[in-house]
Design a protein around this nucleic acid. Sequence first.
DNA 1: CTACTTGCAAATCATTTGCAGATGA
DNA 2: TCATCTGCAAATGATTTGCAAGTAG
Lengths: 161, 161
Amino acid sequence: MADNNFSLNSVEVQQPPLERFAQFLQSRGKRVTKQRRIIVEQVFSHHDHFDADELMAHLREAIERREVSRPTVYRTLSELTEAGLIRKMTLAGRSVYEHAYGYPRHDHLHCQVCNTLIEFQCEELDRISQTVARQHDFQISSHRMFVTGICANCRKAQKLG
Amino acid sequence: MADNNFSLNSVEVQQPPLERFAQFLQSRGKRVTKQRRIIVEQVFSHHDHFDADELMAHLREAIERREVSRPTVYRTLSELTEAGLIRKMTLAGRSVYEHAYGYPRHDHLHCQVCNTLIEFQCEELDRISQTVARQHDFQISSHRMFVTGICANCRKAQKLG
DNA sequence: CTACTTGCAAATCATTTGCAGATGA
DNA sequence: TCATCTGCAAATGATTTGCAAGTAG
């Protein structure tokens, strides 16, 4: 849960993701390249959950133009995760990402029929993590809760079917 | 969360895993074979978290004797999961299993250094799942909570190092 | 008997890596 | 300049599948 920001008060303006990423890259002696720019812009163009393939589908044009390649997409997703701009989770064996930068902490309901993720916030989960961690002399870095089941839409569809 | 048992009161005796599995197999028109017996016996010989490779390591002799093969181990793990005898989770891209049959529901602390899973029980998590699910008109089948961080042992080791 | 199972070899599939040429600071 | 990057092709590693021979009921 490294917070490299001096301030994240929600009232304050926050630098755009690309700038934030540029800082991170610089701090590691890495470079701001055309492909990293393209990928970050795409990732933060809208809020959503996505995996590498879905991201590449959105980048199709750039990929066909040979401006971005599959390995670079994977490499950049790792860097963005390291930088704390996105968060990675594993869903059915596949890596799925979501925005972390500028987006509030939350957990998920996962519909096992349509595979959708529904976000929810619950302060209590933090409290519980802390209590349990204390009991086991465990140093928390983060927690993740998934509630699996069937969403309202899919239940409706099933009844109709 | 399908419960195929008529009763799971902890005071009552419970049939051995192999018998339970035999019932499941029969109900599906499947057969009790030597390899399924060997694998179930091994899986339930002690309580632990394990992945396919670790299980195969324990089955090394049978594998060398050509009594059990890698595909059969994978196939049987799937069946045991379907039968509800074991539970599957994904940890760092790898499938990890644990006993479900005859073992109380729990969640995990996951040490990111030594990769150990520490179990804990917390009724409140069920209550929270239910509340959240209700808010989103979501039908729960189960939940899973992971608290990631560093366990006491690894912290000690790090201080010494 | 004969449908279900198995081991084997080969296929998959997501993700990663080696490398020679390209490029940002 | 020159270390960092990139695309390409190929490697990886866990898991799965097709298939002919084996076996449970």
